[in-house]
Write a protein that binds this DNA or RNA. Structure first.
Lengths: 157, 157
DNA sequence: GGAGGATAGTTTCATTTGAAATGAAATCAA
DNA sequence: TTGATTTCATTTCAAATGAAACTATCCTCC
């Protein structure tokens, strides 16, 4: 006797979320990869610096959910292209505070405009309330996933 | 004069989607990685085979949005563990048709049960209609992103 | 003050990745 | 049939990845 089919991929949320995020991410990155030669990590860092202003490398890693080596390497490339400047922390000299250069700021603004236009097209079929609901739901899932993960990890130690 | 700040990462959908998907994906994978020693790619393949039945390697790649080398390698590992069996296509002998073995089926069912339980916990804070709305919205975004990407690629050729 | 321990960022190195090349088989065209 | 073209899966190889080790600095407590 075949088991009842319990897991339908079409409606299994972790799967749908991963697939959608992958499509959206690749669609958007096509916009800036080709034109500006930036990786996803590099663009995320520019976006965080553009949005929050000067940040330490660690703060970038936290905000962007990139791991530390990725941040270090992306910053090296961005620095080589003179899109960011680095300054040793004056109080804590282990810290590196990173800022957008004028060129970096310009590129950030250019990409931000393109990214927002792309997002607007993507969201065109959703109503305002649907967009709001989506963001609210995503935020809740993010918190929920973190809580569940911690609970699971704690159980296995 | 500073430019008006247009791009807020807190509400920029591609970013939020990527972050949420990453948290959810890692949270869930913790459930089966440790207990069953399966990578995300391996589990996705099991899930597709369990759901759709026998598939060719190419069909798996399409359904799972994994690239072809990843599918090949994951199948090699699954085959070495005797969780899947491979059979040369009878009509087209380049094709490889992959099926779950009895062991594979059993592991798939075990993980499916765990995955569904995990999903249920994750979704506990959402109402039925919120869940439905989320799935509907994700599906629309997936299509939209594909269409936009094709439009963008066409422009740059 | 200095020993022990945390913390910020970098580097190392074994593993993973995926774009492109390859091989093998099918299909099309002449 | 033969030659050119396409398609399926695998392999290759240069590049990316990330866990763990490392360096430099800071902090704490005796």
């Amino acid at each position: 006797m075949p088991m009842p089919e319990p897991l339908s991929l079409e409606t299994f949320l972790p799967y749908r979320l991963a697939v959608t995020a992958s499509f959206v991410s690749r669609g958007l990155s096509a916009v800036y990869e080709r034109r500006f030669g930036l990786s996803i990590a590099e663009w995320r860092i520019l976006a965080n610096l553009g949005h929050y202003g000067a940040l330490t490398a660690g703060a970038i890693a936290t905000h962007s959910t990139l791991d530390k080596p990725k941040v270090t390497r992306a910053l090296q490339r961005l620095h080589a292209r003179r899109l960011v400047s680095r300054k040793m922390g004056r109080k804590d000299r282990r810290e590196v505070t990173v800022t957008l250069t004028a060129t970096g700021e310009r590129i950030y603004c250019d990409i931000a405009a393109l990214a927002l236009a792309w997002e607007a097209q993507l969201l065109a079929t959703l109503s305002i309330s649907e967009r709001a609901a989506l963001l609210r739901t995503l935020a809740r899932l993010e918190v929920g996933a973190q809580v569940l993960k911690q609970a699971g990890d704690a159980q296995n130690d």
